[in-house]
Computed example of a mutant assay.
Amino acid sequence: MERHEMEAFLTLAEELHFRRTSERLGLAQGRVSQTIQKLERRIGAPLFERTSRRVSLTAVGAQLRDDLLPAYRQMQRALADATASVKAVSGVLRVGYSSPMAAALILDAADRLTARYPDLEVQIQEIQLADPFGPIRGDQVQVQITELPVDEPDLVVDRILFSEERKLLVNRDHPLARSSEVTLEDLADTTLISFAGMPLYMEDYHYPRLTPSGRPIPRKEAAFWQEALVMVGAGKGVTFACARAEEYYARQDTVWLPFPHFPRIDYGIIWPRNGNTARVQAFVGGITGPRTP
């Protein structure tokens, strides 16, 4: 049974009046009669008894009404829920990112989301490594793709989206640039540039303080990623980055060295524990990461 047939039948079964049924459905009265007659021919029995004074259900019609009504009401609820969910995913969603690869993922997800939710606007904002959680806690962004680990009680970590090999950035004239292999022990003989403002556990994970033999690794701090790149290019220290970032940040004064002796850099989705909105969940459910090499 098609939806318009179901609606015509159930409305007439409620109203028991062709004119009122046609008015409720916004159809011509003759169209309602034709729809009911076609349905009766398909079933092989009258569904309504019609006289000049009244319309009533036959036994077959009453049985069909009782069987159809629960399914029809469930269908109406499903349509209403779907409509409400689309309306809930509207307005502006601000998404933070800390790497250009994440930005590319966000833009791709934004295209798919806005096609599905035309009243939604996705805005993106770069997050500085020196303040990785300030914007999301200040509601400047509602969801973020960022480096892991993240261990904050007020933030939800959804999943790892992608994982990247780690590289060590050194000045092209640095002694390490001519080494066949660079290890953690070599870092004790240089200066490692980290980022001020990172949580201690995150800083220690990405920028170790000691070599495996216990030698201290000298450190400097930068406030922004571009500042760290300039410092490396000027020979003021070395720093880590994911391998694919070289596509975006390669410089003539800097060499990117493989560094397989340290964990890969994982990137995940985070959002405030009290900010689990329909917009956020639509974004989280719609974004997919690239296949990890």
Rank of each mutant, 00 (worst) to 15 (best):
Y201E: 06
Q34H: 12
F259D: 01
R178G: 07
R112G: 08
T11W: 10
Y205E: 02
R54L: 08
Q128T: 11
G285M: 08
M101V: 14
E164R: 14
Q252C: 04
G289Y: 04
E165L: 06
Q142F: 07
R31I: 01
L25P: 09
A104K: 14
L107K: 14
Q125A: 13
T114M: 14
Y97S: 07
Q123I: 12
V170P: 07
V255R: 11
S33V: 08
D204V: 01
D131H: 10
L168C: 09
I136C: 03
P118V: 04
A88V: 06
I36Q: 03
G61D: 05
L229H: 02
E15N: 01
I217Y: 04
L47S: 06
F240Q: 02
V232C: 00
L155I: 15
L69P: 07
I124Q: 02
T21Y: 09
N171L: 00
E221C: 02
L12Y: 12
M6Q: 15
P70G: 01
F162M: 02
A228M: 15
S194E: 06
P132R: 03
Q140N: 11
M6Y: 08
A234K: 00
M202K: 14
L168D: 09
C242D: 14
R273I: 12
T58N: 03
R20H: 01
R273H: 04
P46A: 05
V238L: 04
W225R: 11
Y207R: 00
L64K: 10
I193A: 01
R54P: 00
Q140R: 15
F224N: 07
R264K: 07
E15H: 00
I217P: 02
T35D: 00
Q123A: 12
C242L: 05
R279M: 05
V182I: 13
F259L: 07
P153N: 04
S194L: 02
A62W: 10
S98G: 14
R251Q: 14
N171Y: 06
A282F: 13
L176W: 12
R50N: 04
R41P: 01
R53S: 13
